[in-house]
Design a protein around this nucleic acid. Structure first.
Lengths: 235, 235
DNA sequence: CTCAAATTATGACATTTATCACTTTTTTAT
DNA sequence: ATAAAAAAGTGATAAATGTCATAATTTGAG
């Protein structure tokens, strides 16, 4: 497959710098490095499909992936994005269930594969690591519940404002206060949970109201306080 | 407070029978029993509020609680229900964050309080217990993501059918195929993520279509296959 | 560079769902 | 048992959002 390439594990990647691996000892980290295989994945590549059995997790070294579920009529619902330092696929490994989401590369990514035996044995051997993974999952659960409530109660307009701010938090703005990540209108719709046309119209409205500027897929946030107000986002 | 009463820890409650405590040794279980304080909570009692700091989790011995988030305009979004054997409040203890939900007693409940130190020390000492808690959280996360997708993509009608089936799975039907749990229309609306009036109207429609029978808050499911079809529920 | 495919954009319209105002019924507390 | 409060039910209406059709523009593969 031309869109996956094996890449040597680069020595300048410092696993320790990733929050998840905080509790690991030097030796554990070394053996982890040994058992990892790292690959380069091109945009569009699917790591795993919803419903498939996965035998390990991936740590994202570089790049961006979208994690989504596919609804009854085939429409994607984006659950979250993963970027450097994020662990993906881990939920299915631990819960011993089939993957409940699909992971697709949005920006070319370098990923390291962690076989589930390695992961579970680390959990059993190192309680601090177990705790740190558990924290991770609990935070994710908190976010998922929050977003569930938002989708249930906020209007599409409010949710779109919120999503723009969420993207700002996750991927930052460049010097120009433009969102560093660029998504298609459809992908935005799949985050917000609405129709693509609705996102297009609302973005135009936001532009008219001088909240944002649009330049193809680049979105520049020019009135963040107002977006916060519209999205009912309390920080 | 008259709606909380301390109750002696009854010897016929077998903690081991709860899935979460599977991995614990006899001694661990004994010391756990020692450090637990059990109380009886009346309907309407709030265990903890969203945003409050909680210093322990509760194991539900008996009764039903609803776990919900409060939206911007004060509307509740029910995330899940907890019943015998379920652990609640645990997420905030582990992630070391403020409670992100409120827990309210729906059916009078007996709850045992587990101080967070006891819980965290058990996690550190017993990897199997840690794993079992992690599994629990991961499953919950999977469910939350599924529900998120449903709310984002399904119609209110579909979601109501789905919620009825969910309640069937969680609380079973009696001999009469009536849902064992009875909720107000507003509570149903707060699960489905819609207005109370919409639930009232849709329940009437379901009744007209001979899918259910209504008797006050008692809901009898008389055409489950059709409900499955309407809710697009694949089992 | 070029062309097909994908994406973005826009208008018209249908549908769903929320909101409000009000009545009836049920539940709860005293 | 009775009054007050809460919940259930109903209709009218408005607002939000989805759907469909179609055109313009952009993107990306070769």
């Amino acid at each position: 497959m031309k869109n996956i390439q094996s890449v040597p594990f680069s020595d300048d990647v410092d696993l320790l710098s990733y929050e998840i691996f905080n509790g690991l000892t030097e030796e554990e980290l070394d053996s982890l490095t040994q058992s990892m295989s790292c690959t380069l994945h091109k945009r569009g590549n699917i790591l795993y499909h919803e419903g498939s059995r996965i035998n390990g997790a991936y740590i994202v070294i570089k790049g961006i992936l979208k994690i989504y579920k596919t609804g009854f009529d085939g429409k994607e619902q984006i659950i979250r994005f993963a970027k450097d330092g994020d662990l993906i696929g881990f939920r299915s490994v631990v819960s011993d269930e089939l993957a409940c989401t699909t992971s697709k590369v949005v920006n070319d990514a370098v990923l390291c594969y962690l076989p589930s035996e390695v992961l579970t044995s680390l959990i059993k051997v190192n309680p601090e690591f177990a705790m740190s993974l558990m924290k991770l999952t609990c935070r994710e659960l908190g976010e998922s519940n929050k977003f569930l409530t938002d989708i249930a109660q906020k209007t599409v307009r409010e949710r779109l404002a919120e999503v723009l701010l969420l993207l700002m938090d996750t991927f930052d703005l460049d010097e120009d206060s433009t969102l560093q990540i660029s998504l298609t209108r459809e992908e935005l719709a799949n985050m917000v949970g609405t129709a693509t046309e609705s996102v297009i119209r609302l973005l135009s409205e936001f532009k008219m109201d001088k909240l944002i500027e649009l330049n193809g897929r680049k979105i520049k946030l020019i009135n963040i306080p107002k977006l916060i107000k519209i999205g009912n986002v309390y920080i």
